[in-house]
Simulated assay, not measured.
Amino acid sequence: MKVSNALLEEAVKIYKVLSNTSRIKILYFLENNEADVSTIVENVNLPQPMVSHQLAMLYRYQLVTREKKGTHVYYCLDDPHILEMVDAMLGHVSHEIKGEPHPYKNSEQRLSK
């Protein structure tokens, strides 16, 4: 797959957004929930200003959507594929911590499956 510099630069921006533990916690919470800020605060155990700031960043990069209903704004995960990528990274980290070999040693093995 040939990848343009513009595409790579956008991917790097998303990786930077995902380099924050609080944002990942929020994304995992929103995987199966539509919630307002108060509900997110209660479930991810982070202060409200931090949650609001992280949601703004996630929204800016189209990782969450928001919808105003009455006086509340509800957030939900915009693209579930983003968590598949995070899950893959967590799998990688898990292998590293345990000192186990990775299921696919190289791209040839991956492509032959």
Score class of each variant (00 low, 15 high):
M1N: 12
K2I: 06
K2P: 06
V3H: 07
V3N: 07
S4K: 14
S4Q: 13
N5V: 09
N5G: 09
N5L: 13
L7Q: 13
L8F: 08
E10L: 08
E10F: 08
E10W: 09
V12W: 11
K13C: 03
K13M: 06
I14T: 09
K16S: 09
S19E: 11
N20D: 14
N20H: 15
S22I: 09
R23S: 03
R23P: 01
I24R: 11
K25I: 00
I26G: 00
L27A: 04
L27H: 08
F29Y: 15
F29H: 10
E31S: 13
N32A: 11
E34R: 10
E34F: 00
E34T: 07
A35H: 03
A35I: 03
A35T: 04
V37D: 02
S38D: 15
S38I: 08
S38C: 03
I40H: 02
I40G: 01
I40Y: 02
V41Q: 06
V41W: 03
V41E: 08
E42I: 03
N43M: 04
N43P: 02
V44Q: 03
V44I: 04
V44R: 05
Q48W: 05
P49K: 12
M50H: 11
V51L: 05
S52C: 06
H53L: 07
L55I: 03
A56K: 15
L58A: 02
L58R: 04
Y59R: 07
R60P: 00
Y61I: 01
Y61F: 12
Y61G: 01
L63M: 13
V64Y: 00
V64F: 00
R66S: 08
K68Q: 12
K68L: 03
G70R: 14
T71D: 13
H72N: 14
Y74K: 10
Y74T: 05
D79I: 04
P80W: 06
L83Y: 03
V86C: 04
D87V: 07
D87Y: 09
D87P: 05
A88Y: 08
M89S: 07
L90T: 06
L90I: 10
G91E: 14
V93D: 07
V93P: 00
H95Q: 12
H95V: 05
H95M: 09
E96W: 10
E96N: 10
I97T: 07
K98S: 12
K98R: 15
G99A: 07
E100F: 10
E100P: 00
E100N: 15
E100M: 13
P103C: 07
P103M: 07
P103T: 07
P103Y: 08
Y104I: 09
K105H: 12
N106P: 03
Q109Y: 05
Q109N: 12
S112Y: 03
S112R: 15
K113S: 11
K113C: 05
